[in-house]
């Protein structure tokens, strides 16, 4: 609650011309927006560019922020719409250097465990990319941002029942995208619950 009060105050101060207040908002939410953009876009460079564009949009539209709404929900609404627009534009591009330079050796090295974790994370990240963007968005909001159905409905401008339906389908799609291992683990998890 205190956090929301701070944010409303920072928004008001920024609107009054205090640039430092916007700095606080950027510092608080860069991590969140960057993670959201990375999950949606699956590319660190794209995510960095998107974060910069998102905050510029946020700044320009700051006067449309409704203080009765949570700042983070408003921010995620702008971020989500921006990422979906970016994905649509990206669909019209051909292979990027990253797509074709997969044979280049990675500069990172580390213990075996670290590599295994990286691989597992990459598995989910790649599986997530196979979901249609609206399902991916809802899955990210639910499982990476830990948002409630109400908040997801607010951000995506859908009804709660649609959110639930998309989550249900999204889970199935993600399990399918994870392949045989994912399906096996899913069956184990649903049996134990």
């Amino acid at each position: 609650m205190e956090q929301q009060v701070d944010e409303v105050q920072w928004v008001a101060q920024t609107l009054a011309g205090d640039q430092l207040a916007f700095t606080y908002l950027v510092e608080r939410y860069t991590h969140l927006v960057y993670n959201h953009a990375y999950r949606m876009l699956n590319d660190v460079q794209d995510a960095e560019d998107a974060v910069q564009e998102i905050f510029l949009k946020v700044y320009m539209r700051l006067d449309s922020f409704d203080p009765s709404r949570r700042f983070v929900s408003w921010l995620l609404t702008i971020s989500s719409n921006h990422c979906i627009d970016r994905l649509r534009r990206k669909r019209q591009t051909w292979l990027t250097l990253d797509d074709v330079a997969f044979w280049l050796p990675s500069s990172r090295s580390g213990p075996e465990r670290h590599t295994l974790e990286q691989e597992q994370r990459a598995t989910v990240q790649q599986a997530l990319q196979q979901l249609p963007e609206h399902y991916r968005l809802i899955m990210i909001l639910r499982y990476w941002h830990e948002l409630s159905y109400t908040e997801i409905a607010d951000i995506t401008e859908l009804t709660e029942s649609t959110v639930k339906t998309r989550l249900h389908r999204g889970r199935k799609m993600l399990v399918n995208a994870l392949g045989t291992d994912g399906e096996l683990l899913w069956n184990m998890e649903t049996i134990t619950s």
Binding site: T30, H31, Y34, N35, Y38, V44, E48, V51, E117, Q120, R121, T123, V124, Y143, W144, L178
Partner: peptide, 9 residues
């Protein structure tokens, strides 16, 4: 799968 994991900007 070690998720949800957060990546550092």
């Amino acid at each position: 799968y070690d998720q949800p994991a957060s990546i550092v900007p």
